[in-house]
Structure formats: C-alpha cells, structure tokens
Simulated scan of single mutants.
Amino acid sequence: MLELIATFRGELAALSAAFVWAMSSVVYSRVGQRIPPLQLNLIKGGFAIAMILVTLGLRGTFFPEIPTLSLLLLALSGILGIGLGDTAFFNTLNRLGARRTLLVQTLAPPLTALLAVTFLDEVLTKTAVFGISLILFGVAWVISDRVSETPAETQNLWQGTMWGVVSALSQAGGAVLSRAALAETPATPLSGALVRLVAGVAVLPLWMVWMPGAVKWKPVRSPRMWGILAVAAFFSTYLAIWLQQTSLKFAPAGVSQTLGATSPLFVLPVAAWTGEKIGLRAVLGAIAAVAGVGLLFS
C-alpha cells in the first residue's frame, strides 16, 4: 500500500486538491456575491501566505533554498496562475455560475498537456491520453447536465466565457511553469507554493492601480465573514496549492491538471445529499470520469 502511494503520490495529490477545491467552491460561489473577485483573491492569498510562513517556520525551513531559475519560473507561475488566473476564475464564477464555470475550466487540462509536450518534452502514453480524454468527457457531461440549472447561470454569458478562457489559459501556463521549476530541482512543493502565492498576490495591487475604474473594494466588517474567509483560504489556497505543487513535482503536468479538474465529481454526492436532483447524464459522466482516473493509475 505504501509503495502504491509513493508511486502515485503526484496523482493522489491532484485528486486530493480537486476534492478540497470542490468543497471550497461551494463557499466561494456565495462569498463571491458579496466580495469583488480581485479583493477576494487578495484576501485569500494573504491568509494563505501567513499560514505557509508559519508552517515553514515550524519545520525549520523558513527561508528555503531555491535555485534562481526555479525561483523566477515559480514567480511567473504565480503571477499568471494566481494573480490573473484566480481573479479571472472568480469573475467567471460571478457571471456564469459554478456549473458553466467548471465547464469552461475543462479547457485547462488539454492546454496544459499541449504546453507541456511542446515546452517540457513530456510524453504521454496512449493509455494516459485515453484516460485524460475520458475524464474530460465525463466532467463535461457532469457539468452540462441541465436538470438543476438556474436562470442566473444563463446571464452574462459572453463576458463570463471570456473570463473563463483567460482563467483556463492562465492556469495551464502557470502549471507548466511550476512543473518546469519543481520537476528536477530540490525546491519543495510548500516552498514553491509560497513563491507562487507571494508573486500572485504582489501583482494584485498593481492591477488595481492599472485599472482603478474596474476594481471595486467593499469593506469586510463582519467577524463571521472574516472567519469564513480564513477557513476557506486554509482549504482552497494553503492546502490545495500545496497539494497541487506536490502533484506537479511528481506527475506529468497534463495528468496533474486533468485530475485536478475532477472537482465536479466530488460535488455530486454533496448536491444529492442536499436534495438537488442529479440527472442520468451527470451519473454517466461521473462513471466515465472515474474510469479515466482508473486508467491513469493503471
């Protein structure tokens, strides 16, 4: 069992990150209606940076040694994937709703695989390609099931789709840069997550200066809301990015991003438990995606 975990630690980390992000998305879909995307990204990033610094301090690696090139690649990854990608994701979520947002996000894994093959010379086996295809097909079917679709999810379609494409491209580019930085270096996933977060959060104030008219800021005065944001940041940013970086260090970028895109599968049991009607398409899509996951672990 331990040998199996060690062999597939990158893939298991990606699935764990998908689960954590699925649970967090439920919270962010509601919080995002009260806090603007850029502000929400800045707050969650600030919380996560503090948590990672505490963790590194407790582990005695407060200032981890990272090669210069890896440091630069991780910083660029953070600016692209977190600074731009997460903000675009929250914009998409506000305009399309969770279902269509996650559908657009399925563009990220194939884009990541294409970039990794082009720039990192990664090679995917035929079985892996088939597994990735099954997962993407299954996730798309789960999300496109219209049984529980709400009228709000049909608004702002054009703007939301554009933000979604920007988010998918940013996430793909950020993942490939992280993979290049971590794969063959002594940099740890946690230190990589710290560099990405610092760079991603640092660029957000510059965005505010660059587009002052497009950025709204709402004061958060409720202690309860701050508590919700802190808990959400712990799971969605601190823990999920740590797991994502672990996955990118030990698994091919395309495989990592594909498994990370299985979040909708973890939402299904929660939706069913809360009384939401789950259609046959969603069930069949989940079965196809699970079969694809099985192929990646074969």
Score class of each variant (00 low, 15 high):
V209K: 12
W207R: 00
T185K: 11
R146A: 05
G192D: 13
A140I: 13
P223Q: 00
F130V: 14
I135Y: 13
P186I: 08
S170H: 07
A180V: 09
V203H: 09
S178D: 00
V123R: 15
A202H: 05
G131P: 03
I241P: 01
W141K: 07
E184Q: 14
S144C: 01
A172C: 07
G164F: 13
P219N: 02
I228V: 14
L134I: 09
G174Y: 08
T185H: 11
A152L: 12
V220Y: 09
K126V: 10
F234I: 03
W226Y: 02
Q244I: 06
A168K: 10
W163Q: 13
V147L: 13
R179H: 11
I132Y: 08
N156Q: 15
A232T: 10
W163A: 15
I143E: 15
G131L: 05
V166Y: 02
S167C: 15
M211P: 00
V139A: 10
S148D: 15
V123A: 10
K218T: 12
S133E: 07
P219D: 02
A140Y: 02
V176L: 07
R221V: 11
I143A: 12
L239H: 04
T125S: 15
A232H: 02
L157W: 14
T161Y: 13
R146Y: 00
T188G: 10
A187I: 07
A193I: 10
A230N: 02
K216N: 15
S191V: 10
W226E: 01
L239C: 06
